[in-house]
Amino acid sequence: MQTKTIQPIHVLYFETRTSFQEISQYVRVEARKMYQDAIRNELEITGPVYWVYEGADGRPDTVFTLTIALPVTPPSHTIDSPYQLKQLETFQCISEELYGSWDGLVSTYGALFGEIMSQKLGMSGQSREIYLNMDFENPDRNITEVQVGILK
């Protein structure tokens, strides 16, 4: 577990209001379309896909803002895209990498929340999952960085 500051990241993104009950409709859908759109618009992809959760509390029916973001170099030309461009702002967080199936996300978040409570840190209300490696046929090969926003 580590506390760190993530510098601003320029992204192509999709944003929606959803809940954990409804979130599966976006898995393997929006990111794939975003990669295709970035290539079609001649954008340079500079990092892995981020899922940013704003206002999620872990309950299945709580509605929160989900941003699926693909880091790209800011374009020097106008793009024709159903997606938008923005900058993810500086992010103070505590993070841990999960190696393996996403079934382990619950315990990873639990460990991070426990560390936040033991250090008496305030939470920002935002968390991020960065999908460093996704292997849908062999989930034990997944590498996901989980970041929980903290107030400093």
Rank of each mutant, 00 (worst) to 15 (best):
V72F: 08
S81M: 03
P75G: 06
T73K: 15
T62I: 12
I39D: 00
T46G: 01
E44K: 12
T73C: 06
N41R: 03
I68R: 00
G55Y: 12
V63A: 15
D57C: 07
G58K: 11
Y53W: 10
H77Y: 12
V63I: 15
T65A: 14
I39V: 11
E44R: 07
T62L: 14
L70K: 03
P60R: 05
D61R: 09
E54F: 09
G55F: 14
I79T: 07
G55M: 13
V52F: 04
V52L: 08
T67Y: 05
F64Q: 05
E42A: 14
T62G: 06
I39W: 08
G47Y: 05
T46E: 02
T73Y: 10
H77W: 13
D61E: 14
L66P: 00
P48S: 08
L43W: 07
R40A: 15
Y50E: 01
E42K: 15
F64G: 08
P74F: 12
E42Q: 15
R59Q: 14
V49G: 02
H77P: 14
D80L: 07
I39F: 11
P48Y: 00
H77G: 13
D80M: 04
A56M: 08
G47M: 00
G55E: 13
P48M: 02
F64C: 07
G55C: 13
H77I: 13
P75E: 12
T78P: 01
I45H: 02
F64S: 09
N41C: 12
V49W: 02
P74A: 06
N41E: 09
P74S: 15
L43I: 09
L66S: 04
I79F: 09
T62V: 13
D61H: 10
V49L: 06
T78K: 15
P60F: 05
S81W: 07
T73Q: 15
A56K: 02
L43A: 08
P60Q: 00
T65E: 13
H77N: 09
I79L: 06
P60T: 05
G58T: 06
E42D: 15
V63M: 13
T78Y: 15
G58W: 06
P60H: 02
V63F: 14
V52Q: 00
A56Q: 09
T67L: 11
E44D: 02
V63P: 11
V49K: 03
S81Q: 02
E54P: 01
E42I: 05
G55A: 12
Y53Q: 05
Y53D: 08
R59V: 11
L66D: 04
W51D: 10
R40F: 12
S81Y: 10
I45V: 13
I79V: 10
V52Y: 01
P71C: 10
P60G: 01
F64I: 09
L70E: 05
V49S: 00
G58C: 07
V52C: 11
T46R: 05
L70M: 02
I39P: 03
I45A: 04
D61L: 03
D80Y: 02
V72R: 03
P82D: 01
